[in-house]
Simulated assay, not measured.
Amino acid sequence: MTVLPLTRSLLDWYDRSARVLPWRVSPQALASGVRPDPYRVWLSEIMLQQTTVAAVKPYFVAFVNRWPRVEDLAQAETAEVMAAWAGLGYYARARNLHACAKVVAAEHGGRFPSTAAALKGLPGIGDYTAAAIASIAFGEAAPVVDGNIERVVTRLGAIETPLPAAKPIVRAAVAAMTPQDRPGDFAQAMMDLGATICVPKRPACILCPIADGCEARRAGTMERYPVKAPKRARPQRVGAAFVACRPDGAVWLIRRPPAGLLGGTAAPPTTGWSSRRDGDTGAQAAPFPAVWVRAGSVEHGFTHFDLTLEVWRAAVLADPPGEGWWSAPGALSSRDLPTLMRKVVEVAGAAASAD
């Protein structure tokens, strides 16, 4: 395959300007024979799904320090993994991460498959993640397309087809640009370009190594792309959360069911989440009898809907019925709970302090 001039220009820029990231092997180290660790590549790509690099860095470092090999992660307790993930969001990723580690350890001898096709057979690994791992860790020339790369490519070709319908067009363009000799560096260069130069607003075209080949730049319409289909109105759901506190300030927590949103995480008891018309958010929906006092409400946006939780609090002396545990105030760090449930506890605590 002949390397396109655009691809060569991008790789030359990457050699000079690659971001230093804790999961990345630099282009210079790669050229000297250092090989990427597939475990670290996989872990970073799962964490980076719909999450910023800045948010992922401390979690990644904590995970590899605690579980340096995929076998170590496979042997961890699910509750440990979910607690370590708390605050990073999209908790199905954590459940799939643990399930994938177990499969790799038990069925693949601790070694990740080396092709995108085989990687897609593992839990939690779709087209993008499989291509990213295969290209970065194993050198397969698989086309890698994330949101940053979609933006770069739609601007390069001034692609008028709205996303998501444009995805096959973008993928074909990336496949044509991906070199056989440095596919992982190319994928990471495209990611870096979209993250640092070809940004959504006010792209720094004067610094772009491939600006000469960009149709949108020539027309001065960079911010028009990618074209997106009109958004549908987001559904609204409601529910209630019940924060039981002991006199010493400890909070009663339960483990949420493993399936569904926030599955397997720690939380105060809640109702189900229903439409505004059908949702029951009153004290009568509490999981056990107590003098429940309304503390306020919390709003939170998920990928496909917005949620409002009414927060109720109660002072209790005995252990509530059912499985759960008391978490002392000093032990309840910001990373012990998902963001939504941390907000719930904070609202209940603020109301108690105001009494």
Score class of each variant (00 low, 15 high):
residue 2 T to M: 14
residue 3 V to F: 13
residue 5 P to Q: 12
residue 7 T to S: 09
residue 11 L to N: 03
residue 11 L to S: 05
residue 12 D to V: 14
residue 12 D to Y: 07
residue 15 D to A: 05
residue 17 S to E: 15
residue 20 V to T: 14
residue 24 R to E: 01
residue 25 V to E: 03
residue 26 S to F: 09
residue 27 P to Q: 09
residue 33 G to D: 13
residue 34 V to E: 15
residue 35 R to C: 07
residue 41 V to Y: 12
residue 45 E to G: 01
residue 46 I to A: 00
residue 46 I to F: 06
residue 47 M to I: 10
residue 47 M to C: 08
residue 47 M to D: 07
residue 53 V to C: 02
residue 59 Y to C: 13
residue 64 V to L: 05
residue 70 V to E: 07
residue 70 V to W: 11
residue 74 A to D: 05
residue 74 A to Y: 06
residue 76 A to Q: 06
residue 84 A to I: 08
residue 90 Y to W: 08
residue 93 R to A: 07
residue 97 L to N: 10
residue 103 V to I: 12
residue 103 V to C: 04
residue 106 A to V: 06
residue 109 G to C: 08
residue 109 G to L: 12
residue 111 R to M: 14
residue 112 F to I: 00
residue 112 F to S: 03
residue 119 L to W: 07
residue 123 P to N: 08
residue 125 I to F: 10
residue 125 I to K: 11
residue 128 Y to T: 06
residue 128 Y to H: 01
residue 129 T to H: 11
residue 130 A to P: 03
residue 132 A to E: 06
residue 134 A to N: 05
residue 134 A to C: 08
residue 137 A to L: 11
residue 137 A to P: 06
residue 141 A to Q: 09
residue 142 A to P: 05
residue 143 P to Y: 07
residue 144 V to Q: 03
residue 146 D to S: 09
residue 146 D to K: 00
residue 147 G to P: 06
residue 149 I to H: 08
residue 151 R to W: 07
residue 151 R to E: 11
residue 153 V to S: 02
residue 156 L to T: 14
residue 156 L to N: 11
residue 157 G to C: 12
residue 163 L to Y: 12
residue 165 A to M: 08
residue 165 A to S: 15
residue 165 A to Q: 14
residue 167 K to H: 13
residue 168 P to C: 08
residue 173 A to L: 11
residue 173 A to D: 12
residue 174 V to G: 02
residue 177 M to P: 06
residue 177 M to T: 11
residue 179 P to E: 05
residue 180 Q to L: 15
residue 181 D to R: 07
residue 183 P to H: 00
residue 185 D to K: 06
residue 189 A to W: 02
residue 189 A to H: 01
residue 190 M to G: 00
residue 191 M to H: 09
residue 191 M to C: 00
residue 192 D to T: 02
residue 194 G to E: 09
residue 196 T to Y: 14
residue 203 P to G: 03
residue 204 A to Q: 14
residue 206 I to W: 15
residue 207 L to T: 13
residue 209 P to M: 05
residue 210 I to D: 00
residue 211 A to E: 13
residue 212 D to L: 15
residue 220 G to E: 11
residue 225 Y to R: 13
residue 226 P to L: 05
residue 232 R to F: 08
residue 232 R to A: 13
residue 235 P to W: 13
residue 237 R to Q: 06
residue 237 R to M: 08
residue 239 G to M: 10
residue 243 V to S: 01
residue 244 A to P: 11
residue 245 C to W: 13
residue 248 D to W: 01
residue 248 D to I: 02
residue 251 V to H: 10
residue 259 A to K: 14
residue 268 P to T: 15
residue 271 T to F: 00
residue 271 T to W: 00
residue 271 T to C: 01
residue 271 T to R: 02
residue 272 G to W: 04
residue 275 S to Q: 05
residue 277 R to N: 10
residue 281 T to L: 01
residue 281 T to K: 04
residue 289 P to W: 13
residue 290 A to E: 04
residue 292 W to A: 00
residue 295 A to Y: 01
residue 298 V to G: 10
residue 300 H to C: 07
residue 305 F to G: 04
residue 306 D to K: 04
residue 312 W to I: 11
residue 312 W to A: 07
residue 314 A to I: 10
residue 315 A to D: 14
residue 316 V to G: 01
residue 322 G to L: 04
residue 327 S to I: 13
residue 328 A to Q: 15
residue 329 P to D: 01
residue 334 S to C: 03
residue 335 R to S: 15
residue 336 D to P: 03
residue 336 D to G: 15
residue 342 R to S: 09
residue 343 K to T: 01
residue 346 E to D: 15
residue 347 V to C: 04
residue 354 A to T: 10
